[in-house]
Amino acid sequence: MTNTESLENVVLELRRGVIVLAALSQLGSEQYGYSLLKQLAELGMEVDQGTLYPLLRRLEAQGLLVSVWKLEEARPRRYYVISAEGKKLLPKLKKEWAGIVSVMDKMLA
């Protein structure tokens, strides 16, 4: 494994843990997968579609998101939104994240 590959793998692992929080934070209002993907990218978080779509389904299975199919522009789209349970979890996740950032800032200073 080359250094570039190692770096890519580590970065991928780092981002993987953050995507859940990123997705939950952006789903306060209904969004379909592709619109969420674009929104995350606009905010600076490029997420692979192969990661995001299965993640959305998993979060829904865990009860943190709810989804509904809507017919728009002659095309059915699946809209996701944070569930009541997800809303309860989000502040806790944010707090955890703040803690991690604070610890890591100290470590890396």
Binding site: Y34, Y53, R57, R75
Partner: peptide, 17 residues
């Protein structure tokens, strides 16, 4: 495990893209 649903969502995403 929701094959039909995944197919439908994938098609919709690809069409959007």
């Amino acid at each position: 495990k929701g094959r039909e649903d995944i197919e439908k969502e994938l098609r919709s995403t690809l069409e959007d893209m």
